[in-house]
Structure formats: C-alpha cells, structure tokens
Simulated scan of single mutants.
Amino acid sequence: MKKQGSASILLLLLTGILLNACSVRTDLFEKNVAIPNHSWSKSFKPEITVNIEDTISRYHIYAVIRHTDAYRYKNLWMNVGIQNPAGEVNTHQLDLLLATDDKGWLGSGMDDIFEQRIRITDKEKPVPLRAGTYKFTLQQTMREDPLENVMNAGIRIEKAK
C-alpha cells in the first residue's frame, strides 16, 4: 500500500512538471515573409505584426534576410517602418552588411543559401516596447529593382538578458 501511495505522488509530481514545462513562455518572436520568385520588387513591402504583452522587459530587434549565393552585393539597403500600438510610425533606413572581402558572407549558410540576423537596435541599449500590436513594414531600397536572389525578409524580436 505504501508503494502505491509514493508511486502516485511521484506520478503527480512528474505530471505537474511536464504541464509547467509546456506553459513556458518564449522570449523570442521571429517571422519571415517569402519574396515571390526570389525577386524583391520595391513595391512589395512585407508586413509583420506582433503583439507585445511584457512591458517590463527590454528588447533587441533584428532584420532577418535569407538570400542565395548568387546575390550580387555585400549589403542591402532597406527601410523598416515600425508602427507602435498608438499608431505612430517611425521609418528607419538601414544599410545591412551581408558580406566582407575577407570573410565572405557573414550569416550562416547551407549549400548556396545564407541567412543573416542583423541587430537593428543598439547592442548596449535594448528598447522598451509598449503593450499592444506593432506592425513592421520592410522595403528594399537598392538601386536594382527588382532585387534578385533574396528569398525571405523578416523581423526577429528577443528579450534582452
């Protein structure tokens, strides 16, 4: 009888731990939008929406770019529009460094596909975000239109540690 009681308690504890593990909140959001035909026209402006609930934490925001080895440039000029929950829009013009002469592509790659996560907020000053819905709009502003060999563009938001 004693063995059944301790086995039941052990089972109950194990179930509680598993249920708690399933409810762990992630400190990360990432969404990428596929670029049609890997040819990013200036008129194609992917929009990404995220709801922020934790207003105590501070965040780092990254631009995410996935491209092929055939991409012809070392950088990518991009406008990132950020609409906050109050409806205010700020647009940031970014020059994203994708490669250097000595290192080649800076992102991680497999075969001829490379992915870059480039922080667009200051490393030393993560940003606070208000509670509510944010909308990010991405637009390539390179001279080449459409911009060939770009597969995906996206946004990554992670809590600062």
Score class of each variant (00 low, 15 high):
residue 1 M to K: 00
residue 5 G to P: 00
residue 7 A to C: 06
residue 7 A to T: 06
residue 7 A to V: 06
residue 8 S to Y: 04
residue 9 I to T: 06
residue 13 L to D: 03
residue 14 L to D: 04
residue 14 L to V: 14
residue 15 T to M: 10
residue 16 G to P: 05
residue 28 L to R: 13
residue 32 N to A: 07
residue 32 N to L: 08
residue 37 N to R: 04
residue 39 S to D: 08
residue 41 S to D: 12
residue 45 K to G: 00
residue 46 P to A: 09
residue 50 V to R: 05
residue 51 N to T: 13
residue 51 N to G: 00
residue 52 I to C: 04
residue 54 D to A: 08
residue 55 T to V: 15
residue 56 I to F: 05
residue 57 S to K: 12
residue 58 R to N: 07
residue 58 R to C: 03
residue 62 Y to L: 07
residue 66 R to I: 10
residue 68 T to C: 04
residue 69 D to S: 14
residue 69 D to A: 14
residue 70 A to D: 02
residue 70 A to C: 00
residue 71 Y to Q: 01
residue 74 K to S: 13
residue 78 M to G: 09
residue 78 M to C: 15
residue 82 I to H: 00
residue 90 N to R: 15
residue 95 D to E: 06
residue 95 D to C: 04
residue 98 L to W: 02
residue 100 T to V: 12
residue 101 D to G: 08
residue 104 G to H: 14
residue 105 W to G: 02
residue 106 L to F: 03
residue 107 G to C: 09
residue 108 S to H: 11
residue 110 M to V: 11
residue 110 M to D: 04
residue 112 D to P: 00
residue 113 I to R: 09
residue 118 I to F: 04
residue 120 I to H: 00
residue 120 I to V: 14
residue 120 I to M: 14
residue 121 T to R: 08
residue 123 K to V: 11
residue 125 K to I: 06
residue 133 T to M: 10
residue 134 Y to N: 05
residue 134 Y to F: 06
residue 135 K to E: 09
residue 136 F to D: 09
residue 137 T to S: 08
residue 138 L to Y: 01
residue 139 Q to W: 06
residue 139 Q to S: 15
residue 140 Q to R: 09
residue 141 T to V: 15
residue 141 T to C: 10
residue 142 M to N: 10
residue 146 P to T: 11
residue 146 P to E: 05
residue 147 L to Y: 05
residue 149 N to T: 10
residue 155 I to D: 04
residue 155 I to Q: 03
residue 157 I to S: 01
residue 160 A to M: 08
residue 160 A to D: 06
residue 161 K to Y: 08
